[in-house]
Amino acid sequence: MKIIVCVKQVPDTSGKVAVNPDGTLNRASMAVIINPDDMNAVEEALRLKDQMGAEVVVVTMGPPPAEGMLRELMAMGADKGVLVTAREFGCSDTYATSQILAAAINKIGLEKEDIVFCGRQAIDGDTAQVGPQIAEKLGLPQISYVAEVKKEGTSVICQRQLEDGYMTIKTETPCLLTCVKELNEPRYMSVSGIVDCYSKPLDIFTYETLKDDPLIDKSTIGLSGSPTNILTSFTPPQKGAGMMLEGADKATCEQLAGILAKKHII
C-alpha cells in the first residue's frame, strides 16, 4: 500500500500577518510552518503505516526551501518526498494547484490499495478546495472532514465530522480523504528519524516532469490558469468590545429592542 499525503508550507499566523502594499501576503517576512491540518494527515498516514505497513510519500508544491518541510516529515517517518517546483507553477490558485498536484499524483502512480490524504484546509487561504479538487480531477472517491479512519482491505470506513454530528461513510480505495485536527495527535520527529531524513529519497518534479500529463497546460496552471483574482488582502480591524445586557425582565427587553432599532437592525 502507498499513502500519498499532500502538504503545504504556510505562514505562521500565530505571529504578525504581513501584507504587501499591493495587498498580497508578504510571505518572505513571515515564519513558515507546516499547515496544521496537514500534520494530522501525515500522522494518520504514519499510523496506518505502523498498523499495516505502507510507503508514505509526502508531496508539496512550493519554492525550493519547502524541501526543509519534507525532510521534517521524513524525520517523523515518511519514506519519500516529492517537491513540485517550477516558475510555471507560481501564482496558482486552488484550481491550478489541484491541477498540478493531481498531475504529480499521476506521476507517482496510484494503485488499487492506495490512499491520498490532505489536510482539511490551509490556514493561509482557508478555502478547503484543493483536496476535493484533486479528487475530482483524478476521478477518486473523496471523503472530507475525516475524524476517524479504518482500513479493511480495499475498503475505507471514515467518520466525516459535521457541525452537529458525524456521518459514517465507506468507500473503496484508491480514494482521497481530507483530515480534521480531531483525527489524531501528530507525533514528534524522532532522533533516529532526523539522522536518516536527509538520506531518504526526494524527487523534484518540475514543469518538464509533468508537462506531458493531460492536466498540465499553460492555460490550466500558474497565474494564467487561475480563475481567482485577489483584489486585496488585509488584516481586518479588531472588533470593539461587545455589550452584554442581563435580565429577562421587560425593561431589559425594551432596552435591547431600542438598541437594535437605533442600529436599524430591526
Binding site: 526543509g68 525532510r71 521534517e72 524525520a75 514528534y188 520527529m189 524522532s190 532522533v191 532526523i194 539522522v195 531524513c197 536527509y198
Partner: peptide, 15 residues
Amino acid sequence: SKEHQLFRKMYREFA
C-alpha cells in the same frame, strides 16, 4: 547543520 537545526526544533517542541 540542517540536521542539528531539526534536532533543536524537535527537542524544543518536546520540551
